[in-house]
Amino acid sequence: MNAEIATEFDTEGVQKNFMFVNRKAPYGSIYALEALEMVLISAAFEQNAVIAFIDDGVYQIVKGQDTKAAGMKNFSPTFGVIEMEKEDADEDPDIDMVWRIVVERDSMEQRGLTAEDFSIAVEVLDSAELADLMNAQDVVLSA
C-alpha cells in the first residue's frame, strides 16, 4: 500500500539561517552557476543567508571575467545582484533578513588574491571564524 505524499509544508513565519558554500571555480563545471541560482531564490523567501566562497570558489567573484573565448555565459555580474540584495536587506527596515558575503582568508591568499580583486564587497574570515559561523547555521548547502 502506498503512503500518502504531502507536497506542501506549513512554513509560515519560519525564518532560518542559510549558508551557501561555494567551493568550485566558475566555468569548469556547472556547480557555481546553479549554486548562484539557489542563492537568488532564497532572497525571495526573506531568509538570513551567508554566501561563502572557499577553495577554488573564490575565483567565482574575481573582477573582470571574460568568457567570450570559451563561448560560455558570463554569470559573474549576477553576484552584483546578490550584493544589492544584501544592501537592500541592510538598509530597508521592512526587509527582515540579514545577508553576509564572506571569503575564507587562506583560500584567497593561497591563490594570490586580495579583497581588492573581487567584484563585490566581502568580509574576509579566518577558517576558524568561518567554522564558527558555519556551526551557527540551520541549513548549509554546499556545491
Binding site: 507536497t7 539557489m38 531568509q47 554546499s142
Partner: peptide
C-alpha cells in the same frame, strides 16, 4: 517524481530539523 521550482528546496530547509546534502 515531480518537477517543481527551487523554492521547494528552501521550503524543505524551513520545514525540517536537518538538511542533508549528498554531492561531490
Amino acid at each position: 517524481f515531480r518537477i517543481s521550482g527551487l523554492g521547494q528546496l528552501v521550503e524543505l530547509g524551513l520545514a525540517t530539523d536537518r538538511t542533508v546534502v549528498f554531492g561531490d
